[in-house]
Write a protein that binds this DNA or RNA. Sequence first.
DNA 1: CGGTCATGCGGAG
DNA 2: TCCGCCTGACCGG
Length: 322
Amino acid sequence: MPEGHTIHRIARQFSANFVGRRASVTSPQGRFAVGAAELDGQQMTDARAVGKHLLLQFGGDWLHVHLGIYGAWDFSGEIRSDASLYLVGGKASEHTAAGADGENEDSLHSIGAPRKSRVRMGERETGAALTTWPPEPVGQVRARILTETTLADLRGPTVCEVIDDDGVTALIQRLGPDPLAPFETHAQAQRRFVDRLRRSRQPVGQLLMDQSVVAGIGNIYRAEMLFRARMSPHRPGAKVTVEEAESLWRDWVRLLKIGVETGLMLTMSGLRGKAKQDAIDNREDRHWVYKREGLPCRVCGTAVSLETMQQRKLYWCPSCQQ
DNA sequence: CGGTCATGCGGAG
DNA sequence: TCCGCCTGACCGG
């Protein structure tokens, strides 16, 4: 159940451990047998994330994967997965050191030499010692990508298909800006988001979840961003000022960066000491409003509201967010 | 151990 | 507007 930060982490895993290598591609489960055969034996030439979409290039073919609500990748073998892999920009944010061992606690702390390891990404990242190589598929493995030393198993995706360059172009075209996708300048991306948001009369809570407005935000980041902005999810996009919209964009850039670097959706930045550690250790201490319905708002004490918007749960503080 | 629910989408109708 | 996906965390008995 990943939001955009997870897909960027997965893309970085592929970049570090699969790109430039010839791969065997199969579908142990069988449902992707035809597509797998098209890719089998080719070299992986690129790996990138756009919003919640993963794109793995094999020459002129692209493997397009969307994890949906419970898809996940299992990585195993000689996987390099140290914190530096996830640095956005070159300089670690203040959150990296403290948060880097959150969900991927047993995955490889081997900063330096690669070692046998197993990393789960998507739901969470865990590790376990390997005994045989390659390991038997566990459960329904839709796609298996195997190099001489590394393995990635895909399970439960919503989308797993082979597309061509035109398909990639079409996909990118229907998606809103992603701060970490290099298809436009930062200024262009921000302008695209601001214009699209303010041109709509739909509620901003709905617009932030709309992947054609901004790619990568999901239900948790949506709720948390609106609280951080003290903005009601029901405010029409057209009633959001330019300054407010730009501020929302900048906040998303910041949260996404923290998410990629730490693997955690740390939305209460600025915490120190015990509160900060609690946010890293326990999900229930991690958010302002998400999954806190009925509990007192951390700022004003008003009970956090829960309602349904577009079939998704929306959490917000009716007092703080206007 | 069974039931519920979830960080989400595509497609049927 | 609802269903499928068919995993895995969590919770109550």
